[in-house]
Amino acid sequence: MNISSVIFKSTVLATCIFWIVIMSQGFQNYMIPLVFLSMIPISICCAITIFLTIVPFFWVRRGELVDEFDGRNRIIFKKYFPFYAIVSFSLCLYGIVESIFAISFFVSAFFTTMQSWVWLAKDNEKQNN
């Protein structure tokens, strides 16, 4: 499983969403260096979230589904992703309701976690094939 590439892609995606939402409220020139600087904390957040909340599903279930050739990740994805998506959505919605100023953070968190699932599952699928 190539987790580092997934973390890199997630960081780029999260940074894009985060700053697009912020810049839609008003663009300032000083924001440009901040975009690049923010990639450091964003990458840490992405790495922690992916390692702690998504990767374990693939690791734990991997051994149990050895017999399922290329559909292994599809099974894991279909079984766990719906509930993960609902929990993630609920937490992000709660965050937005509690603090509308953090909307960019929670919107990027939701979409990035969703897409990270797809990347991880597809990455594993490729490796299995």
Binding site: F81, P82, I86, M114, V118
Partner: peptide
């Protein structure tokens, strides 16, 4: 309700598989 909620929030990603 479960399917409706899931569809509304994440069907776009689910369709990959």
């Amino acid at each position: 309700w479960l399917n409706g909620l899931y569809t509304s929030i994440a069907a776009f990603f689910h369709r990959n598989f």
